[in-house]
Write a protein that binds this DNA or RNA. Structure first.
Length: 836
RNA sequence: GCCGCGAUGGCGAAAUUGGUAGACGCAUCGGACUUAAAAUCCGACGAUAUUAAAACAUCAUGAGGGUUCGAGUCCCUCUCGCGGCACCA
């Protein structure tokens, strides 16, 4: 069989397609828009392996399909080029990151361009371009200049913040700063000693740096933080708007945000019968307040300073606090570790409902960064408190009845030993007790989140400079908008200092600046933004990439937003996808964007793993380079194979032999060309063509590319059996194959003498008349067991079918003793089942 | 521990969502073509029993139970694997 030479036309057509602007979006007025977005890559030094383009191929198929269905498709690509990996790569290879990044982008772009991806390259962006990060900085300044109005449920300009009267200028300033959505904090942060930078909670994996795997340490460091927690409720509740997101991703985000509704309860602290302080604890189970037998606070609880003079065993307590501070987060939260604590001798906490005192412990199983850093312990109804109470022989009071006597019991049930709560169900008791507490001013309904504010400073060179200035007279002052971008200086030495200071601090000519307020000498903020900053809004910049007046024109944004389809890896579920939703909602509050959610439909791509079953990595030497595969088999075959491997969202092992298979399939189509005539095919073939058009279209929309390709293969097998192939049918096959194999189908399209581009053809309409066949196969069952299949004209009546079966030798033997069946189950055109 | 997903031939997988289990492809085996190989074409390909061969039959979708005329699909129990969260009170 004749084989085609992909080398002879793939590159040729790619150039023609690009030169003709086939993939330009926004060129037609009347078509409906469709925005298809890929998660833009990080141009690393090692180039692409065959796993990377899988998602790009899928979105490209949808893009091509949508164009053929009459949509004005926006399908852009760009580069997420700031961040640690680029900088580490640059340090290792002793090339400046800006040069390394340019080089890597070149390689990536070359690798992508031979795959036939239909991007509108006029819109290419990169996050390291000052004309891009200017707007990243602009957004940061908007955060700085906004506060969150909880009543209105949105961000507002900080100038509209209601400031209490009678504050001194200093207090006024502090009050305002406390409400900014970008704020400076001195709280200890997660510090990676290897990467030498602070990290956000999202950058950790089991207490280790997600990049390098080092255990992170807590380090007190001044840093910029974004108040993402103000958006927690909207980020959570609006997930319900995203009906076309996979539930697994939504569940992951829900768990990450981790909303808990409960109450803060105030305990008065007494020593020697005297009130010496007040401690709030957070609980989701205020109903169990009568079962509280001790209170535990974390070693960082500020109240310890107040209590210190009254604590009789202070040296022991102090030692415990010190020990806890020496532990890493990973060790602190190790579930297997024994619970420890030290009782604060001489102090007691008064339970507001009973008026009785309970002991207070400092215990490092209480987390400092959640709730109030203090808990009311109810050993009977909490696993951890139970273990602790047993260890320290503390009383255990059951207040909720479980199905048996087993304690601890954390389920629901009726309240006992709880005075006015007795007999109530847990949920009811919660409401009653909260009311009781609120009325007496000793408690309030409270919601807490696992989500933490976003640590936004990195003590590294390769990131967007944070556009702030520190003035010895005016304090922290934002860089005026018209002075953006604050450019990252090109320097020879950019190694991280490791001291907690950004390497930019050493670049005196850059650091020294003037205060925009007083004009006096001042210093620039030397920290840079995290890797996730640029990617939190990039999808908006594609819409209007060259605008130098605003980040995106209002009308243009209104036209293209939101993203209709977003394709990328599931590993971004709790990082990029939460950050981007957060920024988008903030921009929505500012009026920059028109929709509350950025991405309407989200699909995640499964990994391609090595032939040895391991993740593709240099370390295992199992990397397959797409360039080699394209050289050997052609881009079309590679595209087909990656889509044919299995369900799109599933991981699959790479097998080059499978790629040979899809290439064989394309060779078959090539050789069919010699059978093409004007003679008509029979109805069966025509009908099969129609069925395939219908199935392939539906499968593309549902991301079932593997079955779409299988349907195409079945059609090709059918056509191969024919002596001649009607030209019309063959061309329809080429058209519906073209989203998968754009080069080969274009070549054949042209060889058949057609003008123009196959990608500009309309998706064939399905002819319902031809689609309907006149015959149907009916399954014949006796007592539920399939005994045969008969082919019948459609809509044959039940009685007629019974007559046929009685006359069919292979089937009538099951008609037991000529008896009448007890029951007949008849599904017209599908199945008949006789129950005897 | 909690939440979610999954388990189908030698392999990747299909199955109109309760109606012919294994489509399509890979690998393998046999045949054709060839001096030969590759490529290509034709054929076989879940297991078992019976048979000269086939037809037919029985069993079979991680295990065990259940619902149903009928279960890969629905329900219950369990095993294993993957992903997420995890001392979050």
């Amino acid at each position: 069989m004749e084989k085609y030479q992909h080398q002879q036309f793939e590159a040729k057509w790619e150039k023609v397609f690009q030169d003709n602007g086939l993939y330009w979006a926004g060129e037609s007025i009347n078509k409906p828009k469709y925005y298809i977005l890929d998660m833009f890559p990080y141009p690393s030094g090692s180039g692409l392996h065959v796993g990377h383009p899988k998602g790009y191929i899928a979105s490209d198929i949808v893009a091509r399909y949508r164009r053929m269905c009459g949509y004005d498709v926006l399908h852009p690509m760009g580069w997420d080029a700031f961040g640690l990996p680029a900088e580490n790569y640059a340090l290792e290879n002793k090339i400046h990151p800006s040069i390394a990044v340019e080089h890597n982008i070149d390689i990536f772009k070359k690798q992508l361009s031979i795959l036939g991806l239909s991007y509108d390259w006029r819109r290419e962006i990169k996050t390291t371009d000052p004309n891009y990060y200017r707007w990243t900085q602009w957004i940061f300044l908007q955060f700085y200049n906004s506060f969150y109005d909880r009543k209105a449920g949105r961000a507002r300009p900080i100038s509209e913040l209601a400031i209490p009267e009678g504050l001194s200028p200093k207090e006024r300033r502090a009050f305002i700063d406390e409400h900014r959505l970008a704020y400076e904090s001195n709280k200890p942060i997660n510090w990676c000693p290897t990467c030498k930078t602070g990290l956000a909670k999202e950058d950790l994996e089991e207490g280790r740096c997600e990049r390098c795997g080092s255990k992170v340490e807590l380090k007190p460091l001044r840093q910029w933080v974004l108040r993402i927690t103000e958006y927690a409720d909207r980020l959570l509740d609006d997930l319900d708007l995203l009906s076309d997101w996979e539930d697994s991703i939504k569940d992951m985000q829900r768990a990450w945000i981790g909303r808990s509704r409960g109450a803060n309860v105030a305990f008065i602290i007494k020593a020697g019968g005297k009130e010496i302080g007040n401690l709030a604890v957070f609980t989701t189970r205020p109903d169990t307040l009568f079962g509280c037998t001790y209170v535990a606070i974390c070693p960082e609880q500020p109240i310890l300073n107040e209590l210190a003079p009254y604590i009789k065993n202070w040296s022991e307590v102090e030692h415990y606090i010190y020990e806890a501070s020496q532990k890493t987060e990973l060790d602190r939260t190790d579930l297997n570790k024994d619970k420890t604590g030290v009782r604060l001798e001489g102090c007691e906490a008064i339970n507001p409902v009973t008026g009785q005192g309970v002991p207070i412990f400092v215990a490092d199983y209480v987390l400092g960064n959640y709730g109030e850093g203090a808990i009311m312990a109810v050993p009977a109804h909490d696993d951890r408190d139970y273990l602790f109470a047993q260890k320290y022989s503390l009383p255990i009071i059951q207040v909720v009845l479980g199905p048996d006597d087993h304690l601890p019991y954390t389920g629901s049930g009726k309240l006992v030993n709880s005075h006015f709560l007795n007999g109530l169900e847990v949920e009811e008791a919660k409401k009653v007790i909260i009311n009781w507490l609120v009325e007496r001013g000793v408690g309030e309904e409270t919601t807490n989140y696992r989500l933490e504010d976003w640590t936004f400073s990195r003590q590294r060179y390769w990131g967007e400079p944070i556009p702030m200035i520190h003035c010895p007279r005016c304090g922290t002052v934002p860089v005026p908008i018209d002075q953006l971008p604050v450019r990252l200086p090109m320097v020879d030495h950019y190694e991280p200092s490791g001291t907690g200071e950004s390497p930019l601090i050493t670049i005196k000519e850059w650091i020294h600046s003037t205060c925009p307020q007083c004009g006096g000498p001042a210093e620039r903020e030397a920290n840079t933004m995290p890797q996730w900053a640029g990617s939190s809004w990039y999808y908006l910049r594609y819409l209007d990439p060259h605008n130098d007046k605003c980040l995106v024109d209002h009308e243009i944004e209104r036209h293209w937003s939101p993203v209709d389809l977003y394709v990328g890896g599931a590993e971004h579920a709790t990082r990029h996808l939460i950050y981007a939703r957060f920024w988008h909602k903030f921009l929505y509050d500012l009026g920059v964007v028109n929709y509350p959610e950025p991405f309407t439909k989200l699909r995640h791509v499964g990994l391609i793993i090595g032939e040895d079953g391991r993740k593709m990595s240099k370390r295992w030497g199992n990397i397959v380079n797409p360039d080699n595969m394209v050289a050997q088999f052609g881009a079309d075959a590679l595209r087909l194979y990656e889509m044919f491997m299995g369900p799109f969202d599933q991981s699959n092992e790479w097998h080059t032999s499978g790629l040979k298979g899809t290439r064989r399939f394309l060779d078959k189509i090539w050789s069919l060309k010699s059978k093409v005539t004007s003679e008509v095919n029979n109805l069966e073939v025509d009908s099969q063509v129609q069925r395939t058009i219908s199935k392939v279209g539906a499968d593309i929309e549902h991301f079932k590319f593997n079955t779409a390709i299988s349907a195409l293969m079945i059609l090709v097998n059918k056509l191969s059996e024919q002596q001649t192939i009607n030209r019309e049918n063959y061309q329809k096959l080429l058209i519906i194959l073209s989203p998968f194999a754009p080069y080969l189908t274009q070549e054949l399209w042209s060889l058949l003498g057609n003008e123009g581009f196959i990608s500009e053809q309309s998706w064939p309409t399905v002819d319902e008349k031809i689609l309907q066949t006149e015959l149907t196969t009916l399954v014949v069952q006796f007592n539920g067991k399939t005994r045969g299949v008969i082919t019948l004209p459609i809509n044959t009546s039940q009685q007629k079918i019974i007559d046929i079966i009685k006359q069919t030798p292979k089937l009538n033997k099951y008609w037991i003793d000529q008896a009448e069946p007890k029951k007949i189950i008849f599904l017209p055109n599908k199945l008949i089942n006789f129950v005897f």
